[in-house]
Amino acid sequence: MHRIVQTRLRFDLRTQDYFERRVKEGKTRREIVRCLKRCVAREVFHLVRPTQP
């Protein structure tokens, strides 16, 4: 997840905008990365969880 977040911070405009918004709110880089990892975990979970038959 760490690698995904780092890559998104470099190339994904939505993630960069999110990062800038959080910086303006006074969050530290560590806190922002933690939030982004949670977002990534949610996205991955929804992709891999089994569907109900």
Rank of each mutant, 00 (worst) to 15 (best):
I4S: 00
R34E: 11
K37D: 05
V5M: 07
E43L: 04
E31F: 02
T51N: 15
K37A: 01
V44H: 13
R3M: 14
E25C: 10
V44W: 09
Q52F: 05
E25W: 11
V48H: 14
F19V: 00
R10V: 02
V44S: 12
R8N: 12
F45H: 13
C39E: 15
R8T: 07
R21T: 05
D17E: 06
L47N: 12
T28D: 02
D17M: 07
H46I: 03
A41E: 05
H46C: 08
R8Y: 08
R14L: 10
P53I: 00
P53S: 05
R8P: 14
I32M: 04
L13D: 15
T15I: 08
H46R: 08
T51P: 10
P53R: 07
V48T: 11
H2T: 06
R42H: 15
D12M: 03
K37L: 02
T7S: 08
M1S: 13
A41V: 03
C35Q: 14
R29A: 03
F11V: 03
R29I: 00
Q16M: 05
V40Y: 01
Q16P: 06
R34S: 14
D12C: 05
L9R: 04
T15N: 06
V23M: 04
L9T: 05
T51I: 08
R30W: 08
L13A: 15
R21S: 07
I4Q: 06
C35E: 09
Y18E: 01
D12H: 05
R14S: 11
V48P: 12
Y18M: 01
Q16T: 01
R3G: 11
G26N: 07
R8G: 15
C39K: 14
C39D: 15
R42A: 12
G26S: 04
G26C: 02
D17G: 10
D17W: 07
C35S: 13
E25I: 10
K27V: 00
R21P: 09
K27S: 01
L9G: 06
R30G: 01
F45N: 12
D12A: 02
E43S: 14
R14I: 03
R29N: 05
P50R: 10
K24N: 12
K24Y: 04
E31P: 01
K37S: 04
C35W: 13
Y18N: 00
T51G: 14
P53Y: 13
Q52P: 09
I32T: 01
Q52D: 13
T15C: 04
Y18R: 00
H46E: 12
H46L: 04
Q6F: 11
L9V: 03
R49H: 08
K24H: 10
D12S: 03
I4V: 10
R3Y: 09
F11C: 10
R21Y: 09
V23W: 05
L13S: 12
C35I: 09
V5G: 11
E31N: 00
D17T: 08
F45K: 14
V5H: 08
I4H: 09
L13R: 13
R8C: 15
R14D: 13
K24T: 00
D12F: 00
K27C: 01
V40E: 02
L36M: 05
R42P: 06
T28C: 00
C39W: 15
C35K: 11
L9Y: 00
K37M: 04
R3W: 10
V44P: 12
E31W: 02
H2M: 10
R8Q: 11
R49F: 01
I32F: 00
E20N: 06
T51M: 10
E25N: 14
K27W: 06
P50I: 06
V5N: 08
R29T: 03
